[in-house]
Simulated scan of single mutants.
Amino acid sequence: MAYLSRNIDNASQLKFWPGIIFSSELEEYINELADIHSVHADSVCIILINCVTATLEFSYVLRANSLSHKIPIDLYNIIVARPSYGKSELTKLLRDMLKSIVMYRTSKFRSSNQAAIGHQVNATLDEMSKAGLMAGLDDCYRTVICDEVDMTFADVGLFLSHNMCRTAGEMNCRALVMTLFDRASHAYIRQLANRSVSVKRSKLNILGCSTGDIISNMIIRMKSGSCFDPAIGRFLFWPLDGPVIPDKVVQKQIDYQRMASLDQFIIILSFMENVIFSFEEDAVHEMVLWGNTCKQKSFDTRNTNEYLSARLGKAIQHAY
């Protein structure tokens, strides 16, 4: 238990610096967007990653360059931050980005049947139930966005609470979500509302915001002797922290002479879809080097910040 608590504490101190994994040009663009939208730069990175995952749609990464081992580009992730950090603003930003794609690329996110009848779609889902998910996932790619994960995901049984209570079977979408995660390239058929619904290409992206109750419940359950919740292992958690950004009297506008608007950037990004990524022969070695470089940069950055904070603390004490 102490080992788990220590790991969670260490993970919460990691920072998702844009300059660690992105090019300098994209880092500059992200910093500009963060200033314009009054959010933290690392938050913009997470939103862009989720948008990329959605726009890639039915894309895969080949493990060991084998067609029989296709890893779907699905992302189940949760942003963990304290209240008033601006998590809802991040989900609003992602919703607006996906809405822009639907508006200017009407064929995006629609199945062949929907396109044939001119059916309008919403790229984001707010219905966290079996019926809601099944209705929106038939041969399509959808993104579930939830502002209150701690309550909503627990209500539908996606994450177990510390008191081990489960919701009603007809509302519990836990089994469906885990099935879609484990068998993303297979059809999923279920009898629903007196009709047979088939998710031909079950692709799902989940983004939620949490204040940390889900992680707290996980620790409480493990401390009481319960087993590890397998749903936790399928989600990526983004612990965010930083000073609250004050509201601006005059909102800064992007310089269109130097950079594209966010809508332009997302529309161009949306043309990346239905692709298969494979590795070159020396890719494994390159990935190891890249991962070590990221760890080293993050380590150096944290040490520099801690050193500067210590120097500042000593200067303040000396001044008094």
Rank of each mutant, 00 (worst) to 15 (best):
Q191C: 06
S5N: 13
R221A: 04
L240T: 00
D42E: 14
C146Y: 01
F235H: 02
R82N: 10
H69F: 14
N305I: 07
S224C: 10
N172Q: 05
S161Y: 02
Q114T: 01
Y76W: 07
L98I: 06
H37G: 00
I46T: 02
G212M: 03
E27N: 13
D155I: 07
K314S: 10
Y29N: 03
R311P: 00
Y188L: 09
E27R: 03
I220V: 10
I214W: 00
V275C: 12
D35N: 10
S100K: 06
R302W: 05
I267W: 07
G242S: 06
A54C: 12
S161E: 09
R234H: 07
F279E: 12
P18A: 01
L56A: 03
Q13V: 05
A315Y: 07
T304A: 14
E280C: 09
L158R: 03
G291M: 14
V52G: 01
I276E: 13
P239E: 05
D42K: 10
V149G: 06
I49Y: 02
S5H: 14
F237T: 03
I145Q: 00
K297E: 08
L158Y: 13
V288R: 13
V44P: 01
K203W: 09
C294L: 13
E28L: 08
M134P: 01
S84K: 15
M287S: 12
V149P: 01
T179P: 01
D150F: 03
D42F: 04
